[in-house]
Design a protein around this nucleic acid. Sequence first.
DNA 1: TCATATTTGTCCTATGATGTGGAACAAATA
DNA 2: TATTTGTTCCACATCATAGGACAAATATGA
Lengths: 109, 109
Amino acid sequence: MSEYLGEFEQIVLLAIVRLEEGAYGVPIRHEIEKRTDRRVSIGALYSTLDRLEGKGFVHSWFADATPQRGGRSKRYFRLLPEGAEALARSKAMLDRMWQGVKVKGGFHA
Amino acid sequence: MSEYLGEFEQIVLLAIVRLEEGAYGVPIRHEIEKRTDRRVSIGALYSTLDRLEGKGFVHSWFADATPQRGGRSKRYFRLLPEGAEALARSKAMLDRMWQGVKVKGGFHA
DNA sequence: TCATATTTGTCCTATGATGTGGAACAAATA
DNA sequence: TATTTGTTCCACATCATAGGACAAATATGA
């Protein structure tokens, strides 16, 4: 297992953080598509979620049924401390690489 | 071919940008190891460089021999406009996901 | 001066990890 | 039994990783 987060793994972890108590498959997918304009297939999302859970970066559990139209029970996700650390490491690494770099007119302090 | 840059691909592109006219295998590797504290194997680096060239994100050429101790001729790399765009897209995507997120005490504006 | 050692740097290839897509399946209410 | 919501499963593509093999240059010494 790699010591580092992949690109999409980072994005998924961040979506979970953003959604706080409401992080389960459907809204996670929606959050990513909304903020990145990137299409997310269902399979890509769940296999990544499973992998993140396997690494101990997130925890998941099934919620009880809700009084809605129908539907299977939701599998909620929460970031674990190990996941927060991995996220912070990835960000620190990229920040150091971007430091002082100028691309297409932009300058990155 | 994926529309997006992998984690390591981003890092390699940034190292090439940072090194300007001096970007060839050995210093690229050194720059990444120095700034990220991440060990980079030679094979990982060249296969990624080849991939980036195949995607049209960088251009490479061989330099003439230099008056040094010995050694094979260097293969230099330069970022192409398509690479700069890919880099900018990746950064924009991650920035939007990080926007307002707080992890381990830090806050990301 | 040519054979060979030394140095610097790239290539090759096998394998594991990550990313991708969508059909099938499951579980709830109507 | 139909409809809705959500997850599992599986096959395959792309990306990441490692290091030994190989190549090409200069140095050296008999």
